[in-house]
């Protein structure tokens, strides 16, 4: 085999391996580490709720898909299946409490379950949006 044939084969092989590795790592890339991500916004849960109830489209464009850090006084903790949800209630409606629902990351569920209503909290999570009664924060963690 001529030298240039060998070089070309080696280049093609290297290219194929590199492309396969890129595909493999892209395909299997991990989910974002929300616990250690910097919050894009920091505000009170009441103010965030107010922004969504005033104009859900405008607030959605601003906050949806972002990590948001909020403070607030806990109304209750709900446990449903594998979810532990810290609730900040600001209103009552057809669907009961309305406000903000923060679903905790599994590593923070234990602590959340022991919280008492009235506790002052600071937490951050991924803003999934507003379901017409509640602002939903997912993958939440407590902030020290």
């Amino acid at each position: 085999m001529k030298t240039w044939h060998k070089v070309a084969s080696l280049l093609v092989l290297t290219g194929v391996i590199a492309a396969s590795l890129v595909f493999y790592f892209m395909y299997n890339k991990p989910h974002p580490d929300y616990e250690n991500m910097e919050a894009a916004f920091t505000l009170s849960s009441a103010d965030l709720y107010k922004e969504f109830t005033a104009d859900k489209t405008k607030a959605g464009n601003k906050y949806n898909g972002k990590v948001v850090e909020v403070t607030g006084r806990l109304s209750k903790v709900e446990v449903a299946d594998s979810l532990t949800i810290c609730v900040f209630a600001f209103n009552q409606g057809v669907f009961g409490d309305e406000g903000m629902r923060c679903t905790m990351l599994p590593g923070y569920s234990g602590k959340a379950k022991h919280l008492q209503p009235g506790a002052d909290l600071k937490l951050k999570g991924f803003c999934s949006g507003f379901n017409d009664t509640d602002v939903i924060l997912d993958k939440c963690s407590f902030v020290k």
């Binding site: 299997n28 989910h31 979810l83 669907f95 999934s128 379901n131 509640d134 939903i136 997912d138």
Partner: peptide, 29 residues
């Protein structure tokens, strides 16, 4: 796991709302 739903059993009226960003997949991509 965060679907909001209501059913009025006196009329049968039913509604639900789902936030698309709350869907979780095994793979981030």
């Amino acid at each position: 796991h965060q679907v909001k739903a209501g059913l009025d059993v006196s009329t049968g009226d039913m509604q639900f709302i789902v936030l698309m960003k709350s869907f979780e997949f095994a793979k981030a991509l």
